[in-house]
Design a protein around this nucleic acid. Structure first.
Lengths: 136, 136
DNA sequence: TTATGTGCAAATCATTTGCAAGATC
DNA sequence: GATCTTGCAAATGATTTGCACATAA
């Protein structure tokens, strides 16, 4: 990955946020300093930076939202290669909510726990062909 | 909420999935049984059903993706009213990954933990005015 | 017989892509 | 100079909305 002023700006702008802005927020803020930067460049660089691990995209699964019928509460596993969502039938840890309540002032009603990794099928496929990570 | 055949169909179609389909998948499947149902109706009903708690929409924050500069790993709190994302500086529980690995066959690389609830500002505002939950 | 829900098409929002021009190595 | 990156505008994908008609209470 070559150097680019715009990518540097995107990273710097994100770094000075204590909250978690959207691409559009970053774009609007950058426009004030650099009136020619384009939204596409912001999106492109956010994606690149997320792929190389410098920043994190907060998302459950990329693409369209997924739905499930509400049964008993449970956790999920998302394959970061194919995007598949699998239920994890492990015990839900209610104690986590109590632990977190000491750190935030709002009222906690529950939590979502999503494990990330590679599913068996993708793990097998990965051995054969290296892929360019288009997700993230 | 009145009864509607279409809403019933959406709920039933989702119930018979062990995976986590998108709105479009539900729509395509329903079209075979009920060739006149519209995509808008599927979206509308998925939203209503999620709002009334019958089903769950799998999403981190609704709307555009959010980004953060990667510091040390940490958890998040999302206000279900205003959508705000706040860092939770509690200790990350690596033991969760081990626990989950007994239930799934893929390789786990990490996890995301998102607490849900109501932030202080919304909690205060809520006392004054009841809102119609447009999120979800 | 009023409020609610539907189907359709158009609108909107988030994100990506094609392409010609500019920057980097 | 070959390759990577940008800006712009157009394209795409996901979801919502306006409106006239149909259905439920």
């Amino acid at each position: 990955m070559n150097y680019s002023r715009q990518r540097e700006e995107v990273l710097e702008q994100l770094s000075c946020h204590i909250d978690h802005p959207t691409a559009d927020v970053i774009y609007s803020e950058l426009r004030e300093k650099d009136p020619t930067i384009s939204l596409a460049t912001v999106y492109r660089n956010l994606k690149l930076l997320a792929q190389n691990g410098s920043i994190r995209r907060l998302t459950f699964v990329s693409g369209a939202d997924h739905f499930e019928h509400k049964l008993n509460p449970h956790y999920h596993f998302v394959c970061d290669f194919c995007g598949k969502v699998i239920d994890v039938p492990m015990q839900v840890a209610e104690t986590l909510d109590e632990a977190a309540s000491q750190y935030i002032s709002g009222k906690i009603t529950g939590h979502d726990l999503v494990f990330h990794g590679i599913c068996d099928e993708c793990k097998a496929a990965e051995k054969l062909s290296v892929r360019d990570d288009d997700r993230l």
